[in-house]
Design a protein around this nucleic acid. Structure first.
Lengths: 343, 343
DNA sequence: GAAAATAGTTATCGCGCGTAAAATTTAATT
DNA sequence: AATTAAATTTTACGCGCGATAACTATTTTC
């Protein structure tokens, strides 16, 4: 390492023997300079560890290389997992991801977009709340910054959307459940904030009709993001009350299912597809903990990696083309059936 | 809202009738200007929505108001939870938190510190890996930036450390377990990356001795962060092999316990403190999911909020005093016993 | 080996704001 | 009303880098 600290590009130009404008070009794109000069620069770089001042760079560049990543709630392992994938994709493409969680609070989502605006990001990857989101605020934001949404769609807003095909997924698990036992009832929250929940309900209705069974939907009250609690309390109540028309329950998501499984356990009911079991419970999402529930949860796995990478690469394409998409893209990945013991 | 966009402070000075230097003072500290002028500024602000350019501000300020928050793995709900608390504390104090996860990879921890350095943060709140961390890199970083560590201690490095008193916590749960049934065996990983694990083992040994019981420690191999998997696979193996000397197992952390509970379920063993139960399993940390395991996990709760807030306020104190601490502070909060059904 | 293309250099400006010193206004005190 | 202290305005400079124009040096092309 070098002797004394390099304070700015001027000084680094002096010690490296390369002019400042050329250095500037190099730092913007190392491949934009001749191979021999690049090597000279990198040699000097390894001796003096200088890095351009981020703030000065971003102040002067037309667009930064920052990418905002906004998720509704990092406390939900689903989002921390997909957030991680997105971050890595940004890093790999040479962008600087800035991860923001809205902490389950739609107002915070607006605040996050506001602070992102101040950071002049090249683009934003947004997993919106959905219905609870401030649609107008998001639309306004999308006018200024290229945005790709993932997980939850906001119809007609933003450049593109990447998510899971709920109709395919639900059909898949409904068919499996029907083939392997009694057709499923559907368990969900009364006022789901996530638009996927509505699609899933709709998909359930269609799938049941297609298979010639009567659908049964059970909605329970509950606010906020403590889905396990709601699944445990309300799900347990429904089980005790014996309101489920069949012995099989398809939950709108894994977190509700995790709660319901714990309630069933408390009630001393054996859940699963075995002979001695009295009911089956299935979920959707393949939550990281679903593998460790008792019994392990049968569910539909979303392809986290594919969603994250497609969302990211779509955004990069928009950014690098410097033009907005002529037509809004929607990409849906198939869910995969994960058969475990619970159903 | 105003008519056309204000481009810079100069233009905002024009429309607000306040000179630019005074505006600059105001944005640095609203209370540093006379009440009447502050009101004039805020009136104009509500009309024209102008915000100072973050990059220009940070380029010129001696120190930014950014606070780096580095956690080892956001996929672990413990860290996403404590990260959230820390973020909120920063926001409340008027700082801008920048949350970075090291994704379970110690090399990423170094990379995170490196990118933070470029952001010239006022201070950093760091939950290090511990043994796996690059001690030298952290120490070097601490020379340049005020750092408060939390959760995991790196002896002698950084301004201060805030965490949980493992000796108190372990003593608490060991005493409870001894009073309420057979004394516990201790279950952990052979090569724990977290320094708390070593403290907990030590504390277990001391507590058992104090209570007059022979300690039994069972260490299992396993790498990485997939603790549930290790708890399930290796824990299940130990249970099947019948190597535990008593019917009670204290796990080094909740995630191992969650895995072991699922293994016990698979083996058809009833876990809990009831008459019909064959073994007891306890954890440590009060992981967000511990409430929903089958049976719900008896554990020691760390005081997330207290740790996060103390770490943050300690850092603010250092930043605002503009002097380093004369003596390194270590603050340990007591754990609280959470009695659930598993033990 | 000369012309053409490419890459690098020097010089200069601008970005939006922090900051300091001096001049001026405003408010508080006697 | 005069004195003084505090707040504000004016003026001016600097931060570190992006961007550009006009040259100059180096490399390619035939």
């Amino acid at each position: 390492m070098g002797q004394r600290k390099i304070r700015n590009m001027e000084e680094f130009a002096a010690v490296s023997g390369i002019s400042r404008p050329t250095l500037s070009k190099y730092f913007n794109d190392p491949d934009s300079v001749r191979r021999s000069t690049r090597e000279k620069i990198e040699a000097a770089l390894s001796q003096h560890d200088y890095r351009p001042n981020v703030y000065a760079v971003n102040q002067n560049r037309r667009k930064t290389r920052n990418i905002g990543v906004v998720v509704p709630n990092l406390a939900d392992p689903f989002f921390s997992e997909i957030g991680r994938e997105v971050e890595l994709a940004c890093l790999a493409a040479g962008y600087s991801p800035i991860l923001l969680s809205s902490h389950g609070n739609p107002a915070q989502e607006r605040a996050n977009l506001d602070s992102l605006r101040a950071l002049k990001p090249a683009g934003v990857l947004l997993a919106p709340f959905g219905k609870a989101s401030d649609r107008e605020a998001i639309a306004r934001f999308c006018r200024d910054v290229p945005v790709v949404t993932f997980d939850a769609n906001v119809e007609g807003v933003c450049e593109a959307f990447v998510g899971t095909d709920n109709f395919q997924s639900v059909e898949l698990i409904v068919e499996y459940l029907c083939r392997s036992g009694e057709p499923p009832c559907f368990f969900e929250m009364k006022t789901p904030s996530n638009p996927n929940a509505n699609k899933r309900r709709q998909a359930y209705l269609e799938a049941m009709e297609r298979h010639g069974f009567a659908p049964h939907i059970h909605q329970v009250p509950g606010e906020g993001w403590n889905f396990e609690e709601i699944g445990a309390t309300e799900g347990g109540r429904l089980i005790s009350a014996g309101v489920f028309e069949t012995d099989t329950v398809l939950c709108s998501n894994d977190r509700l299912a995790i709660g319901m499984l714990s309630a069933a356990y408390e009630l001393g009911l054996r859940v699963g597809h075995g002979k001695d079991c009295v009911m089956r419970i299935a979920g959707q999402d393949d939550h990281p903990f679903s593998r460790y529930t008792c019994p392990p949860l049968t569910t539909i796995a979303q392809d986290y990696g594919a969603i994250a990478n497609r969302a990211a690469s779509t955004l990069f394409r928009i950014i690098e083309s410097e033009t907005r998409l002529t037509e809004r893209e929607e990409t849906l990945f198939d869910g995969k059936l994960v058969m475990r013991a619970s159903a």
